[in-house]
Amino acid sequence: MTDGIETTLLLPDRCRDVYAFEDIIGLAMRISRERVSNLDLSALSFIEPYSMLSLLLLGRNHMRNTGERLGLVNIPLNIHQYLARMDFLSAGVFDVASRLDEKLLYRRSSFSNRVIEVTDIPGRERESVRAIAGVIAVFRKRARHILKYWLNTEIIDYFVTVISEVCQNIFEHSLDSGYLAMQTYSVGSEHVVRLVIMDSGIGIRESFSAREELASLAGSHVIEKALTTPISSKRRFGYGLCQVNAIIEKLKGSIYIRSGESSATVLHKQKQSGASHMFLRDDLAPFPGTQISISLFG
């Protein structure tokens, strides 16, 4: 709010995938510079879990930097229902003027099985360990539905490992707290399961700043190194992202990691056909922390 005048910014319909959401991350500077107080969501037709959590971080960063909560206005009904159901709106990050009629809210019973709602992953070890155990208990209860199209006896255990490894990175390395969400959804005839875990901490490059041999590498190459080599910023060696990458390779899935101004995309399905499968970028708009999206397609 500036001198009592509310500035509203219309968000483009760019919440369909991790790459499209870059357009919204690119607006973060504008939100701060123009002292935007409301985000107009009227143009959104769809929002997937990575975009949802990134939007949540964007709002949290704004709140931390300015002490003000951004408002969300003109939310389309389907988006409003989804955000309410995923506990996005109860995270305390955004102000929402219009409340949904109780009758319009998604009933938990019919939708619950395919999602894990927005879950806080605290920045302190003790609380975080409890939160991770809680998330995994929920995942185990719902896994048969979340992984309906991929189910074999081992995939649930693989995902338990993935959730555990990535969430532990938040309190071990990011110096911040973060969020997790998971969902199965369909795009046309394609089924997608997406696990999203992110924080707005110091980012991967900074967490490795003490490792001299990595200092000269571009951010995306540090991410690549973390995905392909058992390196650790705290110990002589580590396992987390490298282990996650090995598991997702077995499942022929994909990993997208964004940290600071860099990103790495790994498409394991393409690796099998011999095509390029690792795509690195270092020209993204700055956005604090590390955002990870892990997907299986079927």
Binding site: T161, P230, F237, Y239
Partner: peptide, 19 residues
């Protein structure tokens, strides 16, 4: 030992050997 335990143990051992 379940298959995922074996995978995770093996991964830690590989890192241990390498470093």
């Amino acid at each position: 030992i379940t298959p995922i335990m074996e995978t995770n143990i093996d991964s830690v051992f590989s890192s241990y050997r390498a470093y």
